[in-house]
Simulated scan of single mutants.
Amino acid sequence: MKNFMDKDFLLSNEISKKLYHEYSSVMPIIDYHCHINPQEIAEDKKFENITQVWLGGDHYKWRQMRSNGVEEKYITGDATDREKFQKWAETLEKAIGNPLYHWSHLELQRYFGYEGALNGETAEEVWNLCNEKLKTMSARSIMRDSNVELICTTDDPIDDLKYHIAIKEDETFDIQVLPTWRPDKAIAIEKVDYVDYIAKLSEVSEIEIKSFADWKQAITKRMEFFNEVGCKISDHGLLYIPYVEADEDTVDAIFKKRLAGENITEVEELQFKTACMLYVGGEYSRLGWAMQLHF
């Protein structure tokens, strides 16, 4: 009988096996989008348990647990790490066919040497095995063992990027950790906390934002800071592509209306977002950045 998700998992013929084992598997990882916390890399964090590694900030796993009806206390709440891991294990056994099932088991095999299936009954065994192995692992050692050459994190325009700068200046660590410009909050004019966010953008950019022209100036200033730290990629989280054009005066009026605390219409939201996307697209071209549209 073929082993559970063995070394030839998804490799269905000899050509695919040759291409993967002799070529792909030995190539370095260059990851253009991830949610790894740069602080953990800068500080070379050592993890106390597998929950910290797997569930500390993985919104994919959180969403799967919620869809399984798991209470929020076991996802982002005050349950113990062991309890959270148990709920994840019980969720995973119902997720066969979901890529999370594959990813989780491949990680258990490659980093922890566990060849079985994680479920509610095996959770204690896996918990103890992983936690013992983690005693000899850290954020940087995991990256080195994975043959990582470069990763791009996910960063808001108001972020100070101090951990990226610290990593860049650390001569003992040769893996590149670059910021990625994720300006969703600066564009999401319909959100209830948008005015508060613009106030924060004003503060970090040192530009008083009272008009759309001010918004563009502040955004460009933050882009240039990101560029200095090594950013080469933008990333926009989108539910749809906004495209309703409007002239500059109309967009400015919409922006000022929202800053005044008034609600805007759906058409006005689309007009504003269209203007933002067109503007930042031009700036990306000027800076030589790639523009990722993340659906």
Rank of each mutant, 00 (worst) to 15 (best):
M5D: 05
L11F: 10
E14V: 07
S16N: 14
S16W: 15
S16K: 15
K17C: 14
L19V: 15
H21Q: 14
H21S: 12
H35E: 05
H35W: 10
P38I: 03
Q39F: 05
K45H: 15
W62D: 07
R66E: 12
V70E: 05
V70N: 06
K84V: 05
W88C: 01
E93I: 02
I96D: 06
I96F: 09
L100C: 09
Y101C: 05
S104N: 14
F112D: 13
G120E: 02
T122V: 08
E125F: 11
N128Y: 07
K133T: 11
T136M: 09
M137G: 05
R140P: 02
R140A: 02
R144D: 08
V148S: 06
I151P: 01
T154R: 00
D184W: 06
K185W: 04
K185M: 09
I189Y: 03
E190S: 13
E190K: 11
Y194A: 00
I198Q: 00
A199H: 05
E203Y: 07
I207F: 06
I209D: 06
K210I: 03
D214L: 06
W215T: 02
A218W: 01
M223F: 03
D235I: 07
G237V: 11
L238F: 13
L238A: 15
L239T: 08
Y243T: 10
Y243V: 12
V244M: 06
E245C: 05
E245L: 10
D249R: 14
D252R: 04
K256H: 03
K273H: 04
C276V: 12
M277H: 09
W289G: 08
W289Q: 11
L293A: 09
